[in-house]
Write a protein that binds this DNA or RNA. Structure first.
Length: 293
DNA sequence: GTCCAGGGTCCCA
DNA sequence: TGGGACCCTGGA
Protein backbone atom coordinates (compact mmCIF):
# COMPACT_ATOMS: atom_id res chain seq x y z
CA UNK A 1 0.00 0.00 0.00
CA UNK A 2 1.27 3.41 -0.95
CA UNK A 3 -0.25 6.83 -0.55
CA UNK A 4 0.56 10.39 -1.46
CA UNK A 5 -1.03 13.80 -1.34
CA UNK A 6 -2.78 14.78 -4.55
CA UNK A 7 -4.34 18.22 -4.27
CA UNK A 8 -6.91 18.11 -1.50
CA UNK A 9 -6.98 14.33 -1.56
CA UNK A 10 -4.91 11.34 -0.60
CA UNK A 11 -4.28 8.92 -3.42
CA UNK A 12 -4.05 5.31 -2.25
CA UNK A 13 -2.50 2.79 -4.59
CA UNK A 14 -1.17 -0.73 -4.54
CA UNK A 15 -4.06 -2.16 -2.50
CA UNK A 16 -5.55 -5.38 -3.85
CA UNK A 17 -9.23 -5.99 -3.14
CA UNK A 18 -10.34 -2.42 -2.48
CA UNK A 19 -13.65 -1.73 -4.19
CA UNK A 20 -15.38 1.23 -2.56
CA UNK A 21 -18.77 0.51 -4.12
CA UNK A 22 -18.87 -3.08 -2.87
CA UNK A 23 -17.43 -2.10 0.49
CA UNK A 24 -20.05 0.59 1.09
CA UNK A 25 -22.97 -1.28 -0.50
CA UNK A 26 -22.47 -4.70 1.07
CA UNK A 27 -24.64 -3.79 4.03
CA UNK A 28 -22.05 -3.28 6.75
CA UNK A 29 -22.45 0.50 7.06
CA UNK A 30 -25.27 3.00 6.71
CA UNK A 31 -23.69 6.43 6.36
CA UNK A 32 -21.99 6.41 2.97
CA UNK A 33 -24.03 7.53 -0.02
CA UNK A 34 -23.26 7.54 -3.72
CA UNK A 35 -23.28 11.09 -5.02
CA UNK A 36 -24.17 10.11 -8.58
CA UNK A 37 -20.67 10.62 -9.97
CA UNK A 38 -19.29 7.31 -8.76
CA UNK A 39 -17.96 8.85 -5.56
CA UNK A 40 -19.30 8.26 -2.03
CA UNK A 41 -19.77 10.92 0.60
CA UNK A 42 -20.10 9.95 4.22
CA UNK A 43 -19.28 10.57 7.84
CA UNK A 44 -17.16 8.25 9.94
CA UNK A 45 -14.93 8.61 12.98
CA UNK A 46 -16.02 12.21 13.41
CA UNK A 47 -14.95 13.20 9.89
CA UNK A 48 -16.79 13.79 6.65
CA UNK A 49 -15.13 12.70 3.43
CA UNK A 50 -15.58 12.01 -0.23
CA UNK A 51 -14.14 8.74 -1.52
CA UNK A 52 -13.73 7.91 -5.19
CA UNK A 53 -11.83 5.45 -7.29
CA UNK A 54 -10.02 6.14 -10.53
CA UNK A 55 -7.96 3.58 -12.35
CA UNK A 56 -6.31 1.38 -9.75
CA UNK A 57 -6.26 4.14 -7.12
CA UNK A 58 -8.70 5.27 -4.46
CA UNK A 59 -8.85 8.95 -3.51
CA UNK A 60 -10.05 10.28 -0.15
CA UNK A 61 -10.47 13.94 0.71
CA UNK A 62 -8.23 15.25 3.47
CA UNK A 63 -4.57 15.23 4.33
CA UNK A 64 -2.00 12.74 5.51
CA UNK A 65 -2.88 13.32 9.16
CA UNK A 66 -6.51 12.28 8.58
CA UNK A 67 -5.34 9.34 6.52
CA UNK A 68 -2.90 8.08 9.12
CA UNK A 69 -5.12 8.71 12.13
CA UNK A 70 -8.39 7.51 10.62
CA UNK A 71 -8.79 6.19 7.10
CA UNK A 72 -5.87 3.78 7.07
CA UNK A 73 -7.43 1.87 9.96
CA UNK A 74 -11.04 2.48 8.90
CA UNK A 75 -10.54 0.79 5.53
CA UNK A 76 -8.34 -1.88 7.13
CA UNK A 77 -5.69 -1.12 4.51
CA UNK A 78 -2.94 -3.12 6.17
CA UNK A 79 -4.85 -6.39 5.86
CA UNK A 80 -4.41 -8.58 2.78
CA UNK A 81 -8.01 -9.24 1.73
CA UNK A 82 -6.89 -10.85 -1.52
CA UNK A 83 -5.10 -13.62 0.36
CA UNK A 84 -8.06 -14.04 2.73
CA UNK A 85 -10.46 -14.19 -0.21
CA UNK A 86 -8.46 -16.97 -1.83
CA UNK A 87 -8.46 -18.94 1.41
CA UNK A 88 -12.26 -18.76 1.53
CA UNK A 89 -12.83 -20.49 -1.81
CA UNK A 90 -13.60 -23.79 -0.13
CA UNK A 91 -16.18 -24.92 -2.69
CA UNK A 92 -17.69 -23.96 -6.02
CA UNK A 93 -20.30 -21.63 -4.58
CA UNK A 94 -17.77 -19.79 -2.42
CA UNK A 95 -15.50 -19.37 -5.43
CA UNK A 96 -18.37 -17.68 -7.21
CA UNK A 97 -19.43 -15.57 -4.21
CA UNK A 98 -15.85 -14.52 -3.46
CA UNK A 99 -15.29 -13.54 -7.07
CA UNK A 100 -18.51 -11.53 -6.98
CA UNK A 101 -17.59 -9.83 -3.71
CA UNK A 102 -13.91 -9.28 -4.45
CA UNK A 103 -12.97 -5.85 -3.17
CA UNK A 104 -15.18 -5.89 -0.09
CA UNK A 105 -13.27 -4.86 3.02
CA UNK A 106 -14.62 -5.02 6.57
CA UNK A 107 -14.55 -1.44 7.81
CA UNK A 108 -13.26 -0.65 11.28
CA UNK A 109 -16.29 1.38 12.24
CA UNK A 110 -16.96 3.16 15.47
CA UNK A 111 -18.09 0.51 17.94
CA UNK A 112 -20.96 2.45 19.46
CA UNK A 113 -22.23 3.54 16.05
CA UNK A 114 -22.27 -0.08 14.92
CA UNK A 115 -24.16 -1.22 18.02
CA UNK A 116 -26.76 1.50 17.70
CA UNK A 117 -27.13 1.09 13.93
CA UNK A 118 -27.66 -2.65 14.06
CA UNK A 119 -30.22 -2.31 16.85
CA UNK A 120 -32.07 -0.01 14.45
CA UNK A 121 -31.61 -2.53 11.61
CA UNK A 122 -33.77 -5.25 13.11
CA UNK A 123 -36.89 -6.14 11.10
CA UNK A 124 -36.17 -3.14 8.90
CA UNK A 125 -35.03 -2.48 5.35
CA UNK A 126 -31.81 -0.74 4.42
CA UNK A 127 -33.26 2.54 3.03
CA UNK A 128 -35.26 2.98 6.21
CA UNK A 129 -32.30 2.06 8.43
CA UNK A 130 -30.27 4.75 6.69
CA UNK A 131 -33.08 7.26 7.10
CA UNK A 132 -33.45 6.59 10.83
CA UNK A 133 -29.67 6.73 11.40
CA UNK A 134 -29.43 9.97 9.44
CA UNK A 135 -32.26 11.53 11.46
CA UNK A 136 -30.59 10.38 14.67
CA UNK A 137 -27.38 12.13 13.65
CA UNK A 138 -29.19 15.25 12.47
CA UNK A 139 -31.19 15.54 15.68
CA UNK A 140 -28.49 14.70 18.20
CA UNK A 141 -25.09 14.67 16.49
CA UNK A 142 -22.51 17.42 16.19
CA UNK A 143 -22.35 19.37 12.93
CA UNK A 144 -19.39 18.91 10.61
CA UNK A 145 -18.86 21.35 7.75
CA UNK A 146 -17.93 19.68 4.51
CA UNK A 147 -17.80 21.04 0.98
CA UNK A 148 -19.98 24.01 1.86
CA UNK A 149 -22.69 22.08 3.64
CA UNK A 150 -23.31 20.58 7.02
CA UNK A 151 -22.99 16.88 7.79
CA UNK A 152 -23.71 15.37 11.19
CA UNK A 153 -21.55 13.15 13.34
CA UNK A 154 -22.98 10.09 15.05
CA UNK A 155 -24.12 11.15 18.54
CA UNK A 156 -22.11 9.76 21.45
CA UNK A 157 -23.80 7.31 23.84
CA UNK A 158 -23.69 9.83 26.69
CA UNK A 159 -25.95 12.16 24.74
CA UNK A 160 -28.51 9.49 23.87
CA UNK A 161 -28.38 8.11 27.41
CA UNK A 162 -29.92 11.34 28.66
CA UNK A 163 -32.90 11.17 26.31
CA UNK A 164 -36.40 9.85 26.78
CA UNK A 165 -38.30 7.67 24.34
CA UNK A 166 -40.45 10.68 23.53
CA UNK A 167 -37.40 12.67 22.48
CA UNK A 168 -36.47 9.90 20.05
CA UNK A 169 -39.92 10.09 18.44
CA UNK A 170 -38.73 12.12 15.41
CA UNK A 171 -36.69 9.08 14.36
CA UNK A 172 -39.85 7.04 13.82
CA UNK A 173 -37.83 4.06 14.97
CA UNK A 174 -40.86 2.42 16.53
CA UNK A 175 -40.31 -0.23 19.16
CA UNK A 176 -36.54 0.12 18.78
CA UNK A 177 -36.44 3.47 20.65
CA UNK A 178 -36.23 1.97 24.15
CA UNK A 179 -33.54 -0.42 22.91
CA UNK A 180 -31.45 2.51 21.64
CA UNK A 181 -31.72 4.32 24.96
CA UNK A 182 -30.95 1.21 27.00
CA UNK A 183 -27.86 0.50 24.90
CA UNK A 184 -26.73 4.13 25.18
CA UNK A 185 -27.09 4.01 28.97
CA UNK A 186 -25.24 0.72 29.25
CA UNK A 187 -22.35 1.97 27.14
CA UNK A 188 -22.23 5.43 28.72
CA UNK A 189 -22.18 3.99 32.23
CA UNK A 190 -19.49 1.45 31.40
CA UNK A 191 -21.81 -1.45 32.14
CA UNK A 192 -21.04 -2.57 28.59
CA UNK A 193 -17.41 -1.87 27.72
CA UNK A 194 -17.12 -2.02 23.93
CA UNK A 195 -13.35 -1.46 23.99
CA UNK A 196 -12.91 -4.41 26.30
CA UNK A 197 -15.22 -6.58 24.19
CA UNK A 198 -13.15 -5.71 21.11
CA UNK A 199 -9.99 -6.97 22.79
CA UNK A 200 -8.16 -10.08 21.67
CA UNK A 201 -8.77 -11.89 24.93
CA UNK A 202 -12.53 -11.42 24.85
CA UNK A 203 -13.64 -14.79 23.50
CA UNK A 204 -17.38 -14.29 23.38
CA UNK A 205 -18.32 -10.68 22.69
CA UNK A 206 -21.75 -11.54 21.20
CA UNK A 207 -22.81 -13.17 24.46
CA UNK A 208 -22.08 -9.98 26.41
CA UNK A 209 -23.88 -7.85 23.83
CA UNK A 210 -26.96 -10.06 24.06
CA UNK A 211 -27.43 -8.93 27.65
CA UNK A 212 -28.79 -5.70 26.15
CA UNK A 213 -32.53 -5.59 25.48
CA UNK A 214 -33.33 -5.76 21.79
CA UNK A 215 -30.01 -7.43 20.99
CA UNK A 216 -30.38 -11.03 19.90
CA UNK A 217 -28.08 -13.37 18.00
CA UNK A 218 -28.17 -11.55 14.69
CA UNK A 219 -27.61 -8.01 15.99
CA UNK A 220 -24.93 -9.16 18.45
CA UNK A 221 -23.05 -10.98 15.71
CA UNK A 222 -23.26 -8.01 13.34
CA UNK A 223 -21.93 -5.69 16.04
CA UNK A 224 -19.11 -8.14 16.81
CA UNK A 225 -18.15 -8.39 13.15
CA UNK A 226 -18.65 -4.83 11.94
CA UNK A 227 -18.11 -2.88 15.16
CA UNK A 228 -15.61 -4.98 17.10
CA UNK A 229 -13.87 -6.37 13.99
CA UNK A 230 -14.22 -9.99 15.11
CA UNK A 231 -13.65 -11.47 11.68
CA UNK A 232 -14.52 -15.00 12.77
CA UNK A 233 -18.12 -14.15 13.66
CA UNK A 234 -20.77 -15.32 11.18
CA UNK A 235 -24.08 -13.40 11.38
CA UNK A 236 -27.08 -15.26 9.99
CA UNK A 237 -30.04 -13.23 8.78
CA UNK A 238 -32.89 -13.99 6.41
CA UNK A 239 -30.60 -13.66 3.38
CA UNK A 240 -27.98 -15.95 4.84
CA UNK A 241 -30.68 -18.48 5.78
CA UNK A 242 -31.74 -18.52 2.13
CA UNK A 243 -28.17 -19.11 0.97
CA UNK A 244 -27.52 -21.84 3.52
CA UNK A 245 -30.79 -23.55 2.67
CA UNK A 246 -30.34 -23.38 -1.07
CA UNK A 247 -26.62 -24.04 -1.32
CA UNK A 248 -25.78 -26.15 1.70
CA UNK A 249 -29.00 -28.03 2.39
CA UNK A 250 -29.65 -25.98 5.52
CA UNK A 251 -26.37 -26.86 7.23
CA UNK A 252 -23.11 -24.94 7.13
CA UNK A 253 -20.40 -24.93 9.78
CA UNK A 254 -18.66 -21.51 9.71
CA UNK A 255 -15.56 -23.24 11.06
CA UNK A 256 -14.73 -24.28 7.48
CA UNK A 257 -13.77 -20.63 6.92
CA UNK A 258 -11.26 -20.58 9.75
CA UNK A 259 -10.84 -17.19 11.38
CA UNK A 260 -12.44 -15.34 8.48
CA UNK A 261 -16.00 -16.63 8.54
CA UNK A 262 -17.25 -13.06 8.81
CA UNK A 263 -15.64 -12.10 5.52
CA UNK A 264 -17.06 -15.25 3.91
CA UNK A 265 -20.45 -14.17 5.23
CA UNK A 266 -20.10 -10.79 3.54
CA UNK A 267 -19.30 -12.38 0.18
CA UNK A 268 -22.30 -14.69 0.53
CA UNK A 269 -24.62 -11.94 1.74
CA UNK A 270 -23.59 -9.50 -0.99
CA UNK A 271 -23.97 -12.20 -3.61
CA UNK A 272 -27.41 -13.21 -2.35
CA UNK A 273 -28.72 -9.66 -2.15
CA UNK A 274 -27.31 -8.65 -5.49
CA UNK A 275 -28.53 -11.77 -7.24
CA UNK A 276 -32.06 -11.45 -5.85
CA UNK A 277 -34.27 -8.55 -6.91
CA UNK A 278 -35.16 -6.53 -3.85
CA UNK A 279 -38.54 -5.23 -4.97
CA UNK A 280 -41.37 -7.15 -3.46
CA UNK A 281 -43.00 -7.59 -6.86
CA UNK A 282 -39.82 -9.21 -8.09
CA UNK A 283 -39.02 -11.25 -5.01
CA UNK A 284 -38.99 -15.03 -5.23
CA UNK A 285 -42.31 -16.68 -4.48
CA UNK A 286 -40.73 -19.34 -2.32
CA UNK A 287 -38.86 -16.99 -0.01
CA UNK A 288 -39.34 -17.11 3.75
CA UNK A 289 -42.87 -16.19 4.65
CA UNK A 290 -43.63 -13.82 7.52
CA UNK A 291 -45.15 -15.13 10.66
CA UNK A 292 -48.28 -13.12 11.04
CA UNK A 293 -51.78 -13.61 12.29
C1' DG B 1 -57.37 2.29 0.93
C1' DT B 2 -55.41 -2.21 2.09
C1' DC B 3 -52.01 -5.60 2.33
C1' DC B 4 -47.47 -7.14 2.73
C1' DA B 5 -42.52 -7.41 3.59
C1' DG B 6 -38.38 -5.59 5.58
C1' DG B 7 -30.62 -7.79 7.46
C1' DG B 8 -35.19 -9.49 14.60
C1' DT B 9 -36.29 -9.89 19.36
C1' DC B 10 -39.05 -11.12 23.10
C1' DC B 11 -42.47 -13.58 25.45
C1' DC B 12 -45.27 -17.36 26.29
C1' DA B 13 -47.05 -22.07 25.62
C1' DT C 1 -38.86 -24.98 20.04
C1' DG C 2 -42.34 -22.53 17.56
C1' DG C 3 -45.82 -18.97 16.95
C1' DG C 4 -47.42 -14.31 17.45
C1' DA C 5 -46.80 -9.41 18.46
C1' DC C 6 -44.28 -5.37 17.93
C1' DC C 7 -43.34 0.15 15.05
C1' DC C 8 -43.14 2.10 10.85
C1' DT C 9 -42.62 2.80 5.82
C1' DG C 10 -43.19 2.28 0.97
C1' DG C 11 -44.46 -0.43 -3.00
C1' DA C 12 -48.09 -2.93 -5.37
Amino acid sequence: MEYRRAGGEIEISGVADFDIGRTFECGQCFRWNADGSGAYVGVALGRAARVRSEGASVYITGGTADFESAWRQYFDLDTDYEAIRRSLCVDEFMESAARFGAGIRILRQDKWEALCSFIISQRNNIPRIKKIVETLCREFGDPIEFEGRVCWDFPPPERLAALTEGELAPLRSGYRAPYIIAAARAVASGEVDLEMLAGEDCADAPRALKALPGVGDKVANCVALFGLHKLDVFPIDTWMKKVIDSRYGGKLDPAVFGGYAGIAQQYMFFHARSATPRRRSESPKNGPQPRRA
